[in-house]
Structures are given as structure tokens and as C-alpha cells.
């Protein structure tokens, strides 16, 4: 899923302080799972903002709404009738949702209420970690199912580098060395011989480097 984290409330206040009527718009997908932008967080943020502006003596109307998805026209249409009634929308969706909302409601200011962080998973309650950088050309078949592009601080394809120590990365003792994990799993799979195969220079044109990307699937187009 896409993992996001809450923005500091001061940052959100700074964005909206000159408006009078705000819609906080949550998303029921990834940001709900990572507890940054679902219905619950919309409620918490809205309450906190109401309290802040009340203390400041400002009459600020703050409404709450959470859509099934913000990365889908169909669900975004659900606020078509009410969107124009707000001075601005604070979207707690990922960067995709914020942009899709902004595209749909072109004349309304739309602000991001979370920081979109990475593609990852819930390791335990309250801990999400990165697993994929969407490079567009998956290498997992040759790296024992562990991605060095997202999990090595230098995205080294022929690792580990000299900074790997006691299975940890040179940048933090809290961070596993991806190549250490790869080697351990190659061993478990009885495929340590694969370690010596050189990974060729990667084609990054399917990555961010190639410019904004598209997937076109004629077989499913209407």
C-alpha cells in the first residue's frame, strides 16, 4: 500500500488560516490502513483544528467527509454538490488522491494533509516500512524476493557495500542491510551460488528517471 504520515498540524493551520469554511476529506484506502488519513484521522484533525480556531476567536467552519477512494473519479463525484460550498479542501489522501481531487475541483484550493512516504507494509501496529520503489522492472526474481532498490540506502544491485556491519546498514543500526537479508534468504533457499551472478547495469527508463509513467492496457480499455 501507499504509506503516508500525518503532517504537523501547524503546517495545516498555516495553509488554511485565512479561510472560513474547510472540508477535511479522508480516504478509505491505504491512508486508512496506515492510520494517517482515514475517517478516524479526519475526525481527530477536524476536532483539533476547531479547537485551535475557537481559541483564536476565529469563526471557522470545518466539515468532515471520507470517500471510498480519492484516486477514482466515481467516488470523487460524491462531493460534487457540496465542494463549491467550501473555501478549500484539505485532503488526507496520498499525493495521488490530493492531485486527483484538485483535478476534479479545479477552482477549489486543495491542500495536502499528510506526507506521502512510500510503498510499504505494516510490520506491526504503528510501524510501517518500505518495500517497493515502483522502478517499473521488478528484480525480485534474482534477489531472493528482497528488493535492494527500496531497501538498500544506495540501491546497490551487487551488494552489500563495505558499510554493512552485523547485518545492519551503515546509515542506522536500526536498519537491516538489504543485502544481508538477501544472502540469508539465498542460503535458506539453497541458492547462494546465485550471489556471484553479476547484476547488469539497470535500465532506469521505467523508473522516475524516464519521466512521468503510464500503464496502458488495451485489453481492459472500454
Amino acid at each position: 500500500m501507499i504509506v503516508a504520515d500525518k503532517k504537523p498540524i501547524e503546517e495545516i493551520i498555516e495553509m488554511i488560516k485565512d479561510y472560513n469554511k474547510i472540508l477535511i476529506l479522508g480516504c478509505n484506502e491505504c491512508v486508512t490502513v496506515c492510520e494517517a488519513g482515514g475517517k478516524k484521522e479526519v475526525g481527530i484533525l477536524a476536532s483539533a483544528l476547531r479547537m485551535y480556531f475557537l481559541n483564536k476567536g476565529k469563526d471557522m467552519k470545518i466539515d468532515e467527509r471520507t470517500l471510498e477512494r480519492q484516486c477514482d473519479h466515481e467516488y470523487l463525484d460524491e462531493i460534487r454538490d457540496i465542494a463549491d460550498g467550501y473555501d478549500a479542501i484539505v485532503s488526507l489522501a496520498c499525493g495521488v488522491g490530493v492531485q486527483f481531487t484538485a483535478e476534479q475541483y479545479f477552482s477549489r484550493p486543495v491542500y495536502p494533509g499528510v506526507n506521502t512516504c512510500f510503498l510499504g507494509a505494516t510490520e506491526e501496529r504503528g510501524l510501517w516500512t518500505e518495500r517497493c520503489q515502483a522502478c517499473g522492472k521488478c528484480v525480485l526474481a534474482t534477489t531472493a524476493g528482497i528488493c535492494p532498490i527500496s531497501r538498500c540506502a544506495k540501491r546497490i544491485l551487487n551488494g552489500p557495500c563495505g558499510g554493512s556491519s552485523n547485518g545492519k546498514c551503515e546509515i542506522s543500526k536500526e536498519l537491516a542491510c538489504a543485502w544481508h537479508l538477501i544472502i540469508e534468504r539465498l542460503k535458506a533457499l539453497g541458492k547462494l551460488d546465485n550471489y556471484e551472478k553479476l547484476f547488469p547495469i539497470k535500465d532506469w527508463s521505467t523508473d522516475r528517471a524516464g519521466g512521468p509513467r503510464k500503464v496502458i492496457r488495451e485489453d481492459v480499455q472500454l
Binding site: G162, S164, N166, C177, H180, L192, Y195, E196, L198
Partner: peptide, 18 residues
């Protein structure tokens, strides 16, 4: 001296192959 020690020599072989 880096870890894991068992791949230190294979890693050297890989650098030579490169």
C-alpha cells in the same frame, strides 16, 4: 572484515569477474 564473512571471498571473485 565485513559481514557476512562467508561471502567476502565470493564477493572478491565477483569484483574480479566485473
Amino acid at each position: 572484515f565485513a559481514d557476512p564473512f562467508e561471502i567476502r571471498v565470493p564477493r572478491l571473485a565477483k569484483k574480479i569477474a566485473a
